[in-house]
Amino acid sequence: MKLFKFLLVGILFGIVMTKSEAISWFRIQEMFRFQSFHMYGIIGVAVVMGALMHFLIKKYDVKNMFGDVIQFQDKPKTYKASLFGGTIFGLGWAMTGACPGPLYVLVGHGYWIILIVILSALVGTFVYGALRSKLPH
């Protein structure tokens, strides 16, 4: 039952991704062609408001639902992994027009072909796990 809350937040996320049109392959093309402000507006507002939330949570030691003061973890400083992995993901983002969140949302829309994309992503994840120790991080 304690997981039910996450189901509700997930449903909200699916609706937000759809109504924002961030799940649209065409919107992603528009973004990478710098032909509309739409996606930059979405990500920009989310980051600015998110930064304000992080700032306020840290400043006022805001607690989570368990009553614990919220702590944020730093991302590991593996810059090569960020750059190389990020670039490979960027190729895939333009090809499929979707990042991981929208992939799941598109399945909910009944685009079953996306299941092949997700299956391929799992193979990609598996291959990364297999090669991890040999890759620069």
Binding site: V48, P76, G85, G92, C99, P100, V117, S120, A121, Y128
Partner: peptide, 28 residues
């Protein structure tokens, strides 16, 4: 479809995050 999906899985896990983890959470 297939190579694109592969790049998403390989790339996001190599980078340690995707649009949500890096672009939204990480940048903010």
């Amino acid at each position: 479809i297939v190579l694109g999906g592969f790049f998403i899985g390989f790339g996001t896990r190599y980078a340690g995050g995707c649009t949500s983890g890096h672009a939204i959470t990480g940048l903010s």
